[in-house]
Design a protein around this nucleic acid. Structure first.
Lengths: 248, 248
DNA sequence: CGAGCTTTTGAACAAACTCAATTTCTGTGG
DNA sequence: CCACAGAAATTGAGTTTGTTCAAAAGCTCG
């Protein structure tokens, strides 16, 4: 177990880093106490599979730290990522006991888990949980639909630009740099993972990243660090709405 | 207003055709009475736009009869359908007052509407509604993710076969013909609408439908009627899981 | 019957893929 | 500390799939 994983073995809900964004966001003190009693932490190393599609899944969980992916696989091996799970995101579906997707830890990962049965009971009895879960699910549905537009209609270059913009924006909502200039992003995905997300081959991903670099839209340090000298120019390349999706 | 539209101007919830599948599915008699008081019907003709993306949307609704589509449009006019709304499906998002997508009636359409504010109150006070809505939203999220796989990884031929299979299956769940042979489907979409759904051009849609016909996978009567002589062969062409997705 | 659709079909073209060879990075052991 | 092995990423050349542009054929409804 890594140091990062150790850290979250016994955290009180009140001190939890995802307290205000996760499924428990609206709970009051008493409700948190109830959650505290039944929750437990699980840690995974980068690359580890959390569950395989089709397997029994008797828990639901929130991502506390790290990144995980949801992926669908076809019989002949073609793969499509259908979700990117960042801290505070929720995994698992109440009312279903088999995983519908592969869940893979992309980085070291800590999850805050609940056994499914007790969680379903919580949903019935704690409206603050079920309503927050509804809200999060609606957000995810919006994100999935935005991704459908990307997959169905965007060019390879636009796809790459969109992915970088999305990750930068999610980063930003944590770090709160409102800046347009020299935004720095840490890409947590391999080229292959990006290709699985974007519906491309990894070669095309690599070529388009190189092209964006040559055109001065992005700068690359080392393997996974990206600087965006002018964020609005990246958004133009992404062909997103003029507002840059900040409304969503 | 068409005859079909007239029919649903004053229906009691107890007699509603989508009673057992819609957002009200779990409500008891008293709860239905409450809904009855505040609901109202709206009808649209085939081709009419229900709401434009970005417009004020002060109601939510269930599709009672007919078909509607949810579509996203990019600034340069590229369009991607992100949802196909069949009877019992829900439109609108509690907690948001601007439409995120164009909603268009593909056939004559009747919707059962609630003004947004009262509906948000219903959600707070009637767990049977909010929990059913959560369940339906989770189903939609699964459907969106299945669509992401189609958009990102399937070939044009597989996309067409998948679309026909999905419509046939949805039809089947109403008509309950368990049969594998000579399934008859009524395609409610133009080639253009199909292309917007599948992330293709309408020419490619037309070509692939012709190809499937030449290969004996489907037969076409008139413009929009399709017979599927062997449903399992269609599923093979769709490259879906062997179970044909009946689990989802 | 003919105007205005939708749909089909054809031919040339472009974007992304496949296969293959390098190059760059990372971490490990000498 | 350097060299080297293995993984990740880049680059190139040729091919495939689906698009674009254009024209013709079918339907539908005044």
């Amino acid at each position: 177990m890594t140091a990062a994983a150790m850290k979250f073995t016994h955290v009180d809900c009140g001190d939890c880093p995802i307290r205000h964004r996760a499924v428990c966001a609206r709970c009051d003190g008493d409700e948190l106490d109830r959650l505290n009693e039944v929750k437990y932490y699980r840690s995974f190393q980068a690359g580890q599979t959390v569950v395989w599609s089709g397997d029994q899944m008797d828990f639901v969980a929130s991502v506390v730290s790290g990144i995980a992916t949801l992926t669908q696989t076809m019989e002949d091996g073609r793969r499509q990522m259908v979700g990117l799970l960042l801290p505070s995101d929720f995994v698992g579906r109440p009312g279903r006991d088999t995983a519908a997707y592969d869940v893979v830890a992309t980085t070291d990962l800590v999850m805050c888990c609940f056994r499914k049965k007790p969680f379903e009971e919580l949903i019935r009895t704690m409206p603050n949980v079920s309503q927050r879960l509804l809200e999060m699910t609606l957000d995810e549905l919006d994100a999935a639909r935005e991704w459908m537009l990307l997959l169905g209609r965007k060019t390879a270059r636009e796809k790459i630009a969109s992915l970088i913009a999305i990750i930068a924006r999610r980063d930003a909502s944590l770090k709160l740099h409102e800046n347009n200039e020299n935004v720095v992003v840490d890409l947590p995905l391999t080229r292959e993972a990006m290709s699985e997300y974007l519906g491309l081959t990894l070669e095309t991903v690599s070529r388009q990243i190189s092209a964006l670099r040559k055109d001065g839209i992005i700068q690359i340090q080392g393997k996974r660090h990206i600087t965006i000298p002018a964020f609005d120019r990246l958004l133009e390349e992404a062909a997103d709405d003029s507002d840059g999706g900040y409304l969503v």
